[in-house]
């Protein structure tokens, strides 16, 4: 009995320790399922900042950071010079993307990234659906699928009914 208790305590401690270790960077979209070659040899993410992490509906959350497109891109993964799209990994449209830039330039549509180059990105999003959501920067590469960066949980409070999203047509101005 005592032995079992010890085991339980050890297990609980281990879980707490692991939780503490992995808390800042969370895995919750199954990105660990991606092939080692895709995780390690394609896009290197760093200086990722997702803030603030506590917002109300209609508040702005900024995802910014830097990435290096590996010069040693594996042969069996489709090349980023074809078609890529700077995207955000979220569970559905819980945020609305207001603006996106790469190296200070607008990035609304698909583009191409060169291997061996360094890029700085910033995405502004408006909170839409209340809940605790997992947000990460992500690059979709044509024929290679999504390559995801590190993530944070962002908590949205308030009511979905308060969400407003307006657009003005130049024709009506």
């Amino acid at each position: 009995m005592e032995r079992e208790n010890h085991r339980l305590v050890r297990q609980v401690l281990l879980v707490v320790l692991m939780w503490a270790l992995f808390m800042p960077v969370v895995f919750a979209h199954g990105e660990i399922a991606q092939m080692a070659g895709i995780r390690m040899r394609t896009v290197h993410w760093f200086d990722t900042k997702i803030e603030p992490t506590q917002v109300k509906v209609n508040d702005i959350v900024t995802v910014r950071g830097k990435f290096m497109v590996s010069g040693h891109w594996p042969d069996y993964v489709a090349k980023p010079e074809e078609w890529v799209f700077l995207n955000i990994g979220v569970p559905g449209p819980v945020f609305v993307r207001m603006d996106a830039t790469v190296n200070g330039m607008p990035q609304y549509q698909s583009t191409a990234f060169k291997r061996g180059e360094f890029y700085e990105y910033e995405v502004k999003m408006k909170a839409r659906v209340p809940g605790e959501w997992h947000v990460h920067p992500l690059i979709n590469v044509w024929e290679a699928g999504p390559i995801s960066g590190p993530a944070r949980f962002v908590q949205i409070t308030g009511s979905k009914d308060d969400f407003v999203n307006t657009a003005t047509s130049p024709r009506l101005e």
Partner: peptide, 22 residues
Amino acid sequence: TVMTLADYMGFQYIRTAMPEYV
């Protein structure tokens, strides 16, 4: 950039696995 409202909403309402180039 001039977009149609549809293009604009496609940019705004995030589809993680459905990028624009598809």
